[in-house]
Design a protein around this nucleic acid. Structure first.
Length: 470
RNA sequence: UCCCCUGUAGCUCAAUGGUAGAGCGGCCGGCUGUUAACCGGCAGGUUACUGGUUCGAGUCCAGUCGGGGGAGCCA
């Protein structure tokens, strides 16, 4: 007897009907009919929908097992796939035998009831929330997007570089980092000067979890030309918002012989590829998101994959904001050339002016990182942020400074120690090349696609300040 | 970290400082090719925690912890 996924059963009804099969999964609901049978909605997560089992009361274990089934029970059913007599579904299974693997110990307190739950509540039962419609859909969407990303890069000649999670560079950027150490916290070895003696630590030096694979991946970029990283990233910032996680996944491509415009082209092509794949491969889940989470999400993606990307310079962005102020728009912070844009400014641009993501390019050098390439005006650097409505920054990237003298000047200006960057500087000394890259926040890309409001609900186990359950 | 809001049954929420309630879910029964089923009944509570005010606190006050929204940092 072939074991079929629910997806296989429901996808091609014409083939399925009339055949015998076995299905396995977890009960969503059970309804009893006195017509001599029970209906059991069975889900195995292979697609959005559950398959309906019609279980006749004359099965030997009908009283003992079937009538005890509640949401969450696991079982295997074998029977004939038939055209449904009811309205809600095309195919259903006329069950001939049914085996329960596991009952729900206490149905009264089983956390996942067949009713809407708040997302806040479901975070407390994150080990069971994948059994809900929403989180099942999130899981499949997340996978689909991850696969699309790898496929996009692979098809375009990129190599996936596995940059390290543990880093010895304390120069990755401004972000607060998580310490990695095997020292005994209750008995920390000290140097004669009274400082922590990291020479006795596991790596013989201070180490942390990475906040970005960029610096490492740049090295491989100057050999394999087109590379990317895709992995977990850690920020020990005390951020309590709906779009920040302490552990999140980031995609960071890096391309050689490329400038900022090529960088923006790449970001645009990648995002369009991802969302096109999502629309093609997960129409069932996207239909659900459009019905229950965010009415606009499907039309938003359809528009996104077909539209040209909006691109403006930082200077133009500020001038748009200033014009808005002149027309009476109120901001808490006055937009002015030289300031970092506030959330309210980004929202105004993406939500009110354009109504879709916008790439903002060439920011003032003083508000950006040391490695970004100085523009000829001497005031701005070749940086690029892609801002999305409701999320803010979804992509942050730049053309990198490939000229050693300019890089050193920036390091000096920002009072950073050149020695700490010796291998990064070597790339500029040995066959340097113009190159560019960006970081795409994976969870933020999922938020944009699904309309989910909180980043904690698009990752299986969210890590946030004071929360590392599960 | 800052500002605002919030914590009551398994879940979602009610309850003027005066006997803690409903819907859903669960259990029992009825009805039905049902599908967020429907009808009747039953069970279910240290009102987040600690302290205070009061004759009396779910309600008022203080602290702690958790949650939400917004801000900053950013992906």
């Amino acid at each position: 007897m072939p074991i079929l996924s629910v997806s296989r059963v429901l996808k091609s009804p014409a083939e399925a009907i009339g055949t015998e099969a076995t299905v396995q999964g977890w009960v969503r609901t059970r309804r009893d009919s006195k017509g001599g049978f029970s209906f059991v909605a069975l889900s195995d997560g292979s697609c959005f929908d559950a398959v309906q089992l019609v279980v006749p009361a004359d099965l030997p274990n009908y009283q003992s097992d079937v009538l005890r089934l509640t949401a969450g029970c696991s079982l295997e059913a074998t029977g004939t796939l038939v055209q449904s007599q009811g309205k809600g579904q095309g195919v259903e299974m006329q069950v001939k035998s049914l085996k329960v693997y596991g009952f729900v110990e206490d149905p009264d307190s089983y956390p996942i009831q067949p009713k809407p739950h708040t997302f806040e509540y479901l975070r407390d039962v994150a080990h069971l929330r994948p059994r809900t419609n929403t989180f099942g859909a999130i899981g499949r969407v997340r996978h689909t997007l991850a696969m699309a990303i790898h496929r996009f890069f692979h098809e375009n000649g990129f190599s996936w570089i596995h940059t390290p999670i543990v880093t010895g560079s304390d120069c990755e950027g401004a972000g607060q980092m998580f310490r990695v150490s095997t020292l005994d916290l209750a008995n920390i070895p000290k140097t004669p000067e009274g400082k922590v003696d990291f020479s006795q630590d596991f790596f013989g030096k201070e180490t942390h979890l990475t906040v970005s694979g960029q610096l490492n991946v740049e090295t491989w970029c100057t050999a394999l030309s087109k590379v990317y990283t895709f992995g977990p990233t850690f920020r020990a910032e005390n951020s309590n918002t709906s779009r920040h996680l302490a552990e999140f996944w980031m995609i960071e491509p890096e391309i050689a012989f490329a400038d900022l415009h090529a960088d923006a082209d790449l970001a645009e092509a990648l995002l369009k590829y991802m969302y096109r794949a999502l629309l093609n491969e997960r129409p069932d889940d996207m239909k659900f998101f459009a019905e229950r989470i965010d009415k606009e999400c499907v039309t938003r993606l359809e528009k996104f994959v077909n539209a040209t990307f909006e691109r403006i310079t930082y200077t133009e962005a500020i001038s748009l904001l200033e014009k808005a102020v002149a027309k009476g728009e109120k901001f808490e912070y006055e937009p002015k050339w030289g300031i970092d844009m506030q959330s309210e400014h980004e929202r105004f641009l993406t939500e009110k002016v354009f109504g879709r993501p916008v790439a903002v390019m060439n920011y003032p050098k003083d508000i950006k990182a040391f490695y970004m390439r100085m523009n000829d005006d001497g005031k701005t650097v070749a940086a690029m942020d892609i801002l999305a409505p409701g999320i803010g920054e979804i992509v942050g990237g730049s053309q990198r400074e490939e000229r050693l003298d300019m890089l050193d000047k920036r390091l000096d200006e920002m009072r950073l120690h050149k020695d700490d960057y010796w291998w990064y500087r070597d790339l500029r000394r040995y066959g340097t090349v113009p190159h560019a890259g960006f970081g795409l926040g994976f969870e933020r890309a999922i938020i944009y696609a699904t309309g989910m409001q909180n980043i904690r609900d698009v990752i299986p186990f969210p890590r946030t300040p004071r929360n590392c359950q599960f």
